[in-house]
Simulated scan of single mutants.
Amino acid sequence: MKRKKIVLLIFTAFLGVGLLAACSQQNHNKKEEVALTAEEKKELRKQEEALALFLVNNFEDVNKIEFKTISKGGFGKPRFIDFLINDKVDVSTDLSDKYDIEDYGLVYHNNSEMLKRKSIPTTFENLSETQLKVTYYEEK
């Protein structure tokens, strides 16, 4: 009888620890400051510029983008970036996305309206060709 109680207690402890560990992994709504190396900052800027160019070329009325937060990513997890379009459309995406109009991933937050695709995309190759105002993550 005493042995059954010990086994039950150990099982309950393992279950509790497992539950706590699983819950701690679900911090996708928690925003953290991410420290970046100089190399990571350069790579992040390239990714932000590619994303901004993709958005301005393929979606209507994209006039302003503010990159707000990035996630840490980590082992087996992509690095995500949260950004605001025209001060009202709250979106996030995987920074390793290839930004192919036929296969891309934008996640809309806070009941944001969805961006409307252009019927004929523009072909800007540089952000300097556009009227887009961009606030990069490292400039905040």
Rank of each mutant, 00 (worst) to 15 (best):
F80T: 00
S128P: 00
I70A: 03
G105P: 11
D82E: 13
R117I: 00
E48Q: 07
T37D: 00
Q47A: 12
D82A: 11
I101H: 03
V62S: 07
K46V: 07
Y99Q: 15
Y99N: 15
F124M: 06
K68M: 14
K72V: 06
Q131G: 03
I85Y: 14
N86R: 02
A52S: 09
E40N: 02
P121H: 12
K116H: 13
T122Q: 07
V56S: 02
E49G: 14
G105A: 10
S96L: 14
S96T: 07
Q47L: 06
E39T: 02
D90C: 04
L95A: 08
I120H: 13
L51R: 13
V91L: 12
E48W: 09
D97R: 03
S96E: 13
L53A: 02
V89H: 10
S128Q: 05
R117K: 13
F80Q: 05
E49F: 12
E49Q: 13
Q47D: 03
K88T: 15
S92P: 00
D82N: 14
I65M: 11
P121N: 11
K41E: 05
D97S: 05
D97V: 06
K42G: 07
K118P: 00
I85M: 13
K64P: 11
E102H: 08
N111D: 04
R117A: 15
I81M: 01
T123C: 05
